[in-house]
Design a protein around this nucleic acid. Structure first.
Length: 474
RNA sequence: GGCGGGUUGGCGGAGAGGUUACGCAGCGGAUUGCAAAUCCGUGAAGACCGGUUCGAUUCCGGUACCCGCCUCCA
């Protein structure tokens, strides 16, 4: 089975060949943990979770390493901690920062778990320590960042000015290759704010000084904190080595974040290749518009869950669109996804998973064609191959045990009602007066009960909107 | 201004230079006292203008419109 992926670095779909099939290594840029994850944040999580599942299927679960970081050094986190301090909290700023990042990470885990995303892991090491290593926090790798920055200075790729350390972009000839821009064009764009101590307008910060009101760590350049980009370079090096297979993230990170990562990593470790395949997911919109707080169409994953959209339904909606196309979140799509999942859930409830369908694997292996994989699932469903559907849906993170409570029929004993209705119906068939039957049927429907009457008899199925209280009068 | 992506049937959304995508909705039928559920069947597309080709929705060029990045937003 050959996996083909669109490599942003070459702008082509390429056959994926891992450096080491016994340990395929994937790094994905994770969230800055300052607030609840919004539904845009969820897209790379689901996209790369699907890739992770595919890699595990092809190479074996114990032969895949998936690392995704938490950025817990950030001005927005500082601002929230300072706000709490301003409210009179007695803790230190550091403690308040810790409090904010810890609660945000817990939310993130809960929300992503709800959508069926697997936690990153280093070769299936699911011990608490192992899982924690697979989700590294920037604050726990400050030493590695400082070491990398020192190396860059020693090699002439970085310089110190006024407590800052800056990366010398002109020292890396390939700068701009990933995002297809030239340093000169970008400067010509003239939207770059130039600090006076920069040698070149495009140089970016590796380390910056912190005053007393900001978190800081001791360094050769004084007390300070790292720039944003260096954390991913340092952590991927520590956990995956100087060369690894796949680096993923949202398209908006391609420049400058990933470009700067490449510059830092390739200059610090020129003998390595850093990431060989770069994958970028397109952005998400809501009802056709960019999601923004000012437009009032800003949702967190938790908002959707609280509104009653099951995590599995949200996941299905994301999988309906190819990861390299812009995706629109709409209520109509969620309705469609729910209808299909409800049907599949009901049909596979008592079915044992069989063999994974080749068509599903082939679609995913073709640049993560999740829409094609869903089509293959529909085809199998149409053919009645529910064992295949159940097995293959697992590759997409769907129809998993523990995620289907939302689709389960509510507990209710309707036998007495069914018997009563059958009785009324039998009488009506003789008298040709169906008024009593129709009245009872209407009452049942109003209570959210699906009424199925056939020659075989009467069947009552509690539906999604089942309300036992409304049956009390019957 | 620079760079990149997109435009497919009522809606969503794929692949493929020529043969049914698929799903949702609709319509017709079976079934039902009527429905529901289920099953069967079915119409409907490729922004616009050129070019290449025996043949293009699919390749190439242009136009229009939309979107993203260039501002530590995935």
């Amino acid at each position: 089975m050959t996996i083909r992926l669109t490599n942003s670095r070459t702008r082509r779909k390429e056959a994926f060949e891992p450096l080491d099939p016994s340990n395929v290594r994937l790094y994905v840029c994770g969230p800055t943990v300052y607030d609840r994850a919004h539904i845009g944040n969820a897209r790379p999580v689901i996209v790369f979770d699907t890739l992770y599942r595919l890699l595990r299927h092809v190479y074996g679960a114990a032969h895949v390493t998936y690392v995704r970081n938490f950025t817990d050094v950030d001005d927005k986190i500082n601002a929230e901690a300072q706000r709490r301090k301003g409210l009179g909290r007695p803790e230190s700023l550091e403690e308040l920062i810790r409090e904010r990042t810890e609660e945000t990470i817990a939310w993130y885990h809960a929300d992503m778990d709800a959508m069926g995303a697997l936690r990153p892991a280093i070769q299936e090491d699911r011990s608490p320590e192992g899982l924690r290593r697979a989700e590294p926090r920037a604050t726990e790798y400050i030493g590695a960042m400082i070491a990398m920055i020192e190396g860059l200075i020693a090699k002439g790729h970085a310089y110190e000015r006024e407590g800052h350390v800056l990366f010398r972009v002109r020292s890396y000839a390939a700068y701009g290759a990933l995002s297809g821009r030239s340093v000169d064009d970008m400067i010509a764009g003239a939207r770059v704010e130039v600090a006076p101590f920069k040698e070149d307008p495009m140089d970016f910060v590796l380390w910056k000084p912190s005053d007393a009101g900001l978190p800081g760590w001791p360094s050769p350049w004084g007390r300070g904190r790292p720039g944003w980009h260096i954390e991913c370079s340092a952590m991927s090096y520590e956990l995956l080595g100087e060369s690894f297979d796949i680096h993923g993230g949202g398209l908006d990170l391609q420049f400058p974040h990933h470009e700067n990562e490449i510059a830092q990593s390739c200059c610090a470790h020129p003998q390595g290749s850093f990431a060989r395949y770069w994958l970028h997911n397109e952005m998400l919109q809501v009802e056709g518009k960019k999601m923004s707080k000012s437009l009032g169409n800003f949702f967190t994953v938790r908002d959707l869950l609280d509104q009653g959209f099951p995590g599995e339904v949200i996941r299905f909606v994301y999988l309906m669109t190819h990861y390299r196309s812009p995706m629109d979140w709409t209520a109509e799509k969620a309705r469609q996804a729910e209808a299909v999942l409800r049907k599949w859930r009901a049909a596979t409830a008592d079915v044992a998973a069989g063999e994974v369908l080749p068509g599903v694997v082939e679609a995913l292996a073709d640049d993560l064609n999740t829409a094609g994989a869903l089509a293959a699932l529909h085809a199998a469903a149409g053919a009645g191959d529910w064992a295949g559907v159940k097995a293959s849906a697992g590759l997409l993170g769907l129809l998993q045990d523990g995620m289907g409570d939302w689709a389960a029929a509510p507990e209710a004993d309707l036998k007495a009602h069914a018997a009563r209705l059958a009785e009324l119906r039998a009488a009506a068939m003789a008298s040709k007066d169906f008024a009593a039957v129709d009245a009872m049927k209407a009452a049942l429907l109003a209570a959210g009960v699906e009424v199925r009457m056939s020659k075989a008899g009467v069947e009552l199925v509690p539906g999604a909107g089942f309300d036992a209280a409304k049956l009390a009068d019957l």
